[in-house]
Design a protein around this nucleic acid. Sequence first.
DNA 1: AATGAATGAGGCTTCATTCAT
DNA 2: AATGAATGAAGCCTCATTCAT
Lengths: 194, 194, 194, 194
Amino acid sequence: MRRKLTQRGRQRREQLMHRAARLFAERGYDPTSVADIVESLGVGKGVFYWYFTSKEELLAEILKASNHDLRRRQEAAIGDEPDPLERIAIGVRASLEWFRDHRDYFSIIQFAATDERFAPVLRRNRETALGDTIRHLKDAIVAGRIPDQDPEMLALAVLGVVEQLTRRYLVDGDEPVDRVGAAAVSFCLHGLGG
Amino acid sequence: MRRKLTQRGRQRREQLMHRAARLFAERGYDPTSVADIVESLGVGKGVFYWYFTSKEELLAEILKASNHDLRRRQEAAIGDEPDPLERIAIGVRASLEWFRDHRDYFSIIQFAATDERFAPVLRRNRETALGDTIRHLKDAIVAGRIPDQDPEMLALAVLGVVEQLTRRYLVDGDEPVDRVGAAAVSFCLHGLGG
Amino acid sequence: MRRKLTQRGRQRREQLMHRAARLFAERGYDPTSVADIVESLGVGKGVFYWYFTSKEELLAEILKASNHDLRRRQEAAIGDEPDPLERIAIGVRASLEWFRDHRDYFSIIQFAATDERFAPVLRRNRETALGDTIRHLKDAIVAGRIPDQDPEMLALAVLGVVEQLTRRYLVDGDEPVDRVGAAAVSFCLHGLGG
Amino acid sequence: MRRKLTQRGRQRREQLMHRAARLFAERGYDPTSVADIVESLGVGKGVFYWYFTSKEELLAEILKASNHDLRRRQEAAIGDEPDPLERIAIGVRASLEWFRDHRDYFSIIQFAATDERFAPVLRRNRETALGDTIRHLKDAIVAGRIPDQDPEMLALAVLGVVEQLTRRYLVDGDEPVDRVGAAAVSFCLHGLGG
DNA sequence: AATGAATGAGGCTTCATTCAT
DNA sequence: AATGAATGAAGCCTCATTCAT
């Protein structure tokens, strides 16, 4: 595939991805047909297959793009903060903010994780997120800031807290991100023993 | 529907539910066809519709039954333990054990939560689980065992930790439940500030 | 088939026929399943196939029985009335009365006439009804009571009037049979030129 | 649904309707499968659902279209004929002619009238036909051309005669329409008392 | 780049009928 | 006589994908 797209072409492509993301979030991936997507945009079916090889590729692209975007947001937020625990706290808050601004992606990611067709892509994403956190945790342990425990387990626990609070308060609900962030950070830092 | 089932009938019904659960866990709900289920059991397609109105109903039944079973396990484990924090710890460990013994259900539940067709059933299940935990937390707060914070948020955080560690170490992996349980409990109790 | 039935057996059979007739009238033959019939009677499926070879046979039996009954009613009403036009008038009224008392059969017959599977049975029934009327008409022509016209056409016209008024006023509606009968007879006798 | 169809598309749609009408007339609606229709046209199954939402909609469209066509024929035939009885006579003959030219539709309409799924559409059609005739009858009564009787009943009687003779002589048989028309008109006008 | 049309495999469900008990 | 269970063909419809224009 990999077409060279004009300016307008790139816009169409993004338009398709956004619309698809919204529909996937609302109804789920399988129940949303390619016809649904193009119809909701008022274009013909050919358009879709001009920009994507298949419905499957579309979702994969969505996952990749969103992950990339979230990651950039986190990195920008953390900057060169030296304190490892603070870096975790910042990362947590950045994640919450990003999901608040991209509600749709939450359920898509959630779904993709349960589907063998997409789990691989997701797995890779998750590993990177995990890796980042683990690095900070190791730094913290080395620096004596928290007790010496399995950093992977700790990282997973942190992710679990973020995931759960995100769903409830930012995706399903509409809580101020500060309040949720404060609770999440507090729970995690204490949980880590810091 | 509600048929009067004979002994044999009840067995068939359960057989269908178990087999379906396994296939749903392996391939996902939508990609698993009714034909797949009955074929894998070597029976005719009609059998399925003798016991269930639809594929959708089947999943709903699976969700209901598994939730019921998990809940019973927790209650049995907690017994009449008076200490609220200990009750949470026991509940956490019981959940981990149950999921280790019923791996299939984990991904099914995970998926169902992302699908508007089943979210309602799931939501109800989740609310009960949450409610239980919240009750313990309030007791703990009243007893001065942990600081006064929003118990719902805390409960969600605990569930998040459990969910994440379960997936990684008991569903995808095969870690001894004790080690995982210890980490989970430790993280949570510290996180709660207890 | 042709079983020797006990008293109770004959009752069951009739019960099935009546219930089926009602359901066929309400929903149509094809859309009514054997399961619908037996369920609505609270019995097992075996019962049905004990008394009838097939769903098709059931409808044929219903058609035969109802035709037989209607014919008996007409004959009883006509008795030995000597005037051929009066015999037609009496026949018309008798038909109207019978259909008022057996609404269900009207739409069943109507349907069966359009279906190649049952048209044969129906055709035979219709021919007898027609034959009766034609006989009266020929008598009337010979007796100089009405002009000499094609008696078959006349007979069909009479049946057409009866059918239409029956549907509107006795099946769909609930008009007194006398009023409808008077109109039908008047229209027909004038139409015949009598 | 409501698609924008190209020239070719409109042709396909009509082709499907005509073919379906023929098959429905031959075998009945329920016994004719969508597969039968598309196969007999040598196209894929998807084609059908590109043009119609369902098999049910297809029949409804057929009924609507045929009714529309019959009505136009009648109106064209009647023109501005001033004599109300003559208008009825012309209408009767026009109906006979139309059905001779569209045999298929006769049994379809006949069937649809007995099926609760289509009765509504049919009912509306029938009401218009009835309404037209009633109007002429009222004119005739006012003009003193026929005795004062319930015009609805009379109209139904007329329709009944037409229906019956149509079936026998033009659909099942192949009589010259003039002869049948003459008999129908004569019977009806006398029947009306004109 | 884009459209309407077409394909055809495959999914869910129904149902007449048969069978073991 | 009767029941619950089972069969499996067949029906309706969906949908990812391709094609001609």
